[in-house]
Design a protein around this nucleic acid. Structure first.
Lengths: 223, 223
DNA sequence: GATCTGTATACTGTATACAGTCATTGATTG
DNA sequence: CAATCAATGACTGTATACAGTATACAGATC
């Protein structure tokens, strides 16, 4: 008898708040000038301060929010140096994923990767958000193929931080669309079966992304 | 007049609890059979349940604790597959650090690394704990030399999880002491200035650690 | 007019109270 | 005697109340 266990997970309001806040941050509804105050959020969500507070503290631990001296939480603003560090960390995670995938060289995985790349790169209504999401989905697909909880968690952690301050907001569409075409070559590199080749391909690709990022930041005048 | 500014960091009891619990876990005072119950902990610490609860939730988010179905939190027990995943993640982080250090090939950093390795490998009173701490300190030193917040955070995260269930408890001293001598070779690899060489050295070293771990687990009968 | 000081305000951190849930146990009933 | 069901206890999650602290602002002092 294989009945499915009824999903009776302990409902926690704090988790709901956490997800809603994260979505709002990633969606850009919460901007750099917004101050998140426990009482106000609680009132808006029509719940008590306790779960709101828990969610805020967890987002702080994630490095997404910081305590504002004036009270309330604010999006953490990364310095240029930290952005560089973030991309180094990305390279660590994703290039290791590439090594593992190249070592496996599993045809079914490779074809699934190609399918994902093809599907995601085919954007119907172009927008910065659309390009960003496609890029993220493609890169995440590589990670999910690895079947490694920890690498995947770290990937998400990095990308959540990176988007928290809307790093990509300044990138022009044309640049993104150009960069978006490079992903099939990453699958090629994995298909070579050579760990070193696959790794280098990813490192270079992420380096390109970093350069693009820096150029975009330099172009946008708002500090 | 040079009065010292009173250290006015926002005191949060929850942080204190978090640290104490983490220390207790790493120190082995909290074992796999201990059930951490909010009320009990609060009573023991003579504070209210609120900060205790916050600390527990954060440890859960860190992947160190899990909600026991009988109530309370329990150390998360990793499967053998997850231990493999954890070592893969370790390899990702630390080998990337090695690449960066090799690329810099900074003589002062290299000599500081040698100093750390020499100091830590010289254990006066051998014990499993002593070997473990030395090993951790050595590996952590490589990470701190990189000056990358995110890589360092991920390193700590991995090691905290790994030790949460006292993975190393079963390893015999003799094995550890043998493994401990290999670290100077890692500095050699970095000093080659070749990113690939340094990376491979770390990957191999971590692979050895994993094999040792597996052997130790196989030896210890308790599932 | 500038600086200092007291007071109000805003917001946080902690404690406590309340209600609900899950498991266990003991009683009841066929 | 076995099975079912109610009651109890253990814990959790959420709300609320209280107290402390930092910031802003207004009035006082020279």
């Amino acid at each position: 008898m294989a009945l499915k266990s009824i999903k009776t997970e302990r409902r926690r309001l704090a988790d709901e708040v956490y997800n809603q806040l994260m979505d709002a941050i990633l969606g850009g509804e919460i901007g750099p000038d917004d101050r998140l105050v426990q009482e106000r959020l609680a009132a808006e969500l029509e719940i008590s301060r306790t779960p709101v507070r828990e969610a805020l503290l967890r987002l702080e631990q994630d490095g997404v929010l910081v305590n504002s001296p004036r009270g309330g939480f604010v999006l953490y603003r990364m310095s240029e140096g930290e952005i560089r560090e973030l991309y180094q960390a990305r390279a660590a995670i994703e290039s290791q994923a590439a090594r593992i995938l190249a070592g496996q060289n599993d045809p079914s995985k490779n074809s699934e990767l190609r399918a994902t790349v093809g599907r995601e790169e085919d954007i119907s209504t172009p927008s910065i958000r659309a390009y960003f999401d496609a890029n993220r989905n493609i890169h995440r697909q590589f990670l999910t193929m690895v079947n490694n909880r920890f690498l995947l968690e770290m990937f998400d952690n990095i990308w959540n931080r990176g988007t928290a301050f809307r790093l990509f907001a300044a990138i022009e569409k044309v640049d993104l669309s150009k960069s978006l075409g490079d992903h099939m070559a990453l699958v090629d590199a994995i298909e070579s079966g050579n760990a070193g080749v696959a790794q280098e391909a990813f490192i270079d690709h992420i380096q390109d992304g970093f350069d693009l990022q820096m150029a975009a930041l330099a172009h946008s005048d708002n500090a």
